[in-house]
Amino acid sequence: MKIRIKFSKQGYMKFVGHLDIMRYFQKAMRRSNINIRYSEGFSPHQIMSFAAPLGVGITSNGEYLDIEVTDSPQTASSKAMTDRLNQAMVEEIRILSCRRLPDSSKNAMSIVCAADYTLDFSPGSQPEDLDDFFSRLKEFYGRDQILITKKTKKGQRELDLKPLIYRLERQNHSVFMQVSTGSTDNIKPEMVMEAFYQAQQLEYPKFAFRVQREEVYGQDEAGNRIPLEELGENIE
């Protein structure tokens, strides 16, 4: 049975990197006695895959991992499994949902297409004229093209961010954005803000924003972006 787990990562846990989070969940599966399935072969490992790695320093309310389990009482209902896993979690990681995926469904990583982020100003970094800041941001997003140079393994290439930013708007005192995410065009929120500051002829202040991922989306069969958890169903 395939299960999609949604979790949040808050507070000090933002300093724990992606590889360590994977190790953390492997151990958590053992602690909570979840009947996770193992790969075949000489050195079996847990069948577990994460939707989209989260950078160090970023908090999240919408992280995903997929696992495969054999049927057992521990995974008999979404609620039981969520509770059981939460008991094995540290304070700043909460399991938000555990949902069953159809057997035929692709894993999260391969269908990730977008993610939501909010960016709060760090204490002391908020511009004096907030309205001015957001009106500039609106003007920036209104442009036909947002060209940046992206460093790649093979050197530099020019990239137009505009079609990869699905939303960029004000949300109270914060910046909200929805950007392309996944293996092909993976846009980090800092890239967008850096381009914005550059367009204002300003240097990008590295620690000006506290970035939080809010949700990760996959593509359904019709090509629509939907939150990854909605591709699974509650186990009653």
Binding site: Y12, M13, F15, V16, G17, D20, Y24, K27, A28, R31, V56, A88, V90, E91, E92
Partner: peptide, 10 residues
């Protein structure tokens, strides 16, 4: 490796 300094382990 900032995780060296945060504590909060299981």
């Amino acid at each position: 490796q900032p995780a060296r300094y945060i504590g909060g382990e299981v």
